[in-house]
């Protein structure tokens, strides 16, 4: 087994088991989406109109939940040094971490998004478009959260800092995912364009963010 695969398997296992795995962000997203109707009222029209944005926003917040743990523990217990001196580069490690974060922790978000969209009164195809938007956006959300997590690793109360750093950078994903759901709902014919933009952002993040993360981690190790 190559070193890359070995690290991915280990990181995936640790992410899936440690700290409750997908349970934490999923519970957070569910709780947020259960509370929103209580806040804005049961009017079905308002709920349906708000659904794409609220669901995309809840997914964004959920992606920030685990970002603190992504690199923080590894820095304090010496694991990061081990990786830095191993055959796996820090850039590859960043890709692995983000990949494990999506596939082991964040994966329920599109499912929860779909169910919530139906519960908020969206029709099936629109809920599907929104859910697909979340699938395409998750890598981007995870990479930007991970980038913020790498920058803030080892800082006291880094959770707040991560949210402040990552949220503005994630604005485009929020716009495109919610836009896909809303375009499908309103039948403007632009759902596809929104989905493509969400995917394009994720791809761009995949091309750039790992280098930023590796540079940040190298700085933290020095």
């Amino acid at each position: 087994m190559s070193a890359f695969a070995a690290v991915f398997v280990r990181e995936w296992r640790l992410a899936a088991a440690g700290g409750g795995g997908p349970a934490g962000p999923a519970a957070f997203m569910l709780a947020a989406l259960a509370l929103v109707p209580l806040a804005i009222g049961p009017d079905p029209d308002i709920l349906r109109a708000a659904a794409p944005g609220v669901i995309a926003f809840a997914a964004l917040l959920a992606s920030l939940q685990g970002a603190e743990r992504l690199f923080g523990d590894d820095l304090s217990d010496g694991t990061l040094e081990l990786y830095a001196l191993s055959p796996v580069s820090l850039t590859a490690l960043s890709v692995i971490k983000a990949g494990a974060y999506v596939s082991a922790v964040l994966w329920p978000a599109p499912l929860i998004g779909f169910v919530a969209a139906m519960a908020y009164g969206m029709d099936g195809p629109s809920a599907g478009a929104l859910s697909l938007g979340l699938v395409l956006a998750l890598p981007g959300l995870a990479l930007v959260s991970g980038f913020a997590g790498a920058l803030a690793a080892g800082v006291k109360r880094s959770g707040l800092l991560i949210a402040l750093i990552a949220a503005p950078l994630q604005v485009p994903l929020l716009v495109f995912v919610a836009g896909a759901g809303r375009a499908a709902l309103e039948g403007t014919g632009l759902a596809g364009a929104n989905l493509m933009l969400a995917g394009a952002f994720s791809l761009a993040a995949l091309a750039l963010a790992p280098f930023g993360m590796a540079a940040a981690l190298r700085g933290r190790l020095e």
Binding site: P168, L169, V171, P172, V175, F176, A183, T188, L190
Partner: peptide, 12 residues
């Protein structure tokens, strides 16, 4: 990108 997305969001 943020600027583009906000313009996109606003016009649509």
């Amino acid at each position: 990108i943020i600027k583009f997305s906000v313009d996109w969001w606003n016009t649509l």
